[in-house]
Amino acid sequence: MSEETIRRSELMWGAIAAFGVGIMAAVIVVSSFAMAIHPPSNVETIDPTTLNTNSEFAESNLGTRVNPDGSVTVRIVATQFEFLPRCIPVPKDRQVTFRVTSPDVIHGFLIAGSNANTMVVPGYVAQLRTVFSSAGDHLMPCHEFCGLGHSEMWALVKVLDGAEWKPDASGKASCELPR
């Protein structure tokens, strides 16, 4: 084995490694370009210390709402140690926009069995859009440590299909957790 042979094999491996990087980069670019998938990144600020007096995240304004244009928005406050509201009905096969924020510490938002996932950082409104393609219940646990009650901080997302999806006259939909 000459030094030349070694050098050539190294170059070949260097090329293979570079090719590997290229493939990975291409997968990332193509997947985000073709499917327009982006991580939740809307950089929208909000004062966390006055959240309890904020009009958008007022208690009566939280939960699922059908907007005048037919789209659905869910507003959620993640706080120590609960999501408000704790039961969230959403329609199947329609785009749902989640807007979540925290008045106190960092929380996490994850709808198990879906790709809805974001950090909830005080000072920012985390926003994400998703479509649920099958009816059923999903657990929505807090996924970042927020204090001693963290493990008990979860909500339930109920994906409802046509007949079960019944928002009231004002466009609000709500559900109750089984006790």
Partner: peptide
Amino acid sequence: FMDPEHGTGFKFLQAMLTALVVLPTFL
């Protein structure tokens, strides 16, 4: 990536740079 306090631009740049770690690993 899942944080609301950063835009997509620099998240993407750092994702690209992250991919480069394949190089020393392969070598």
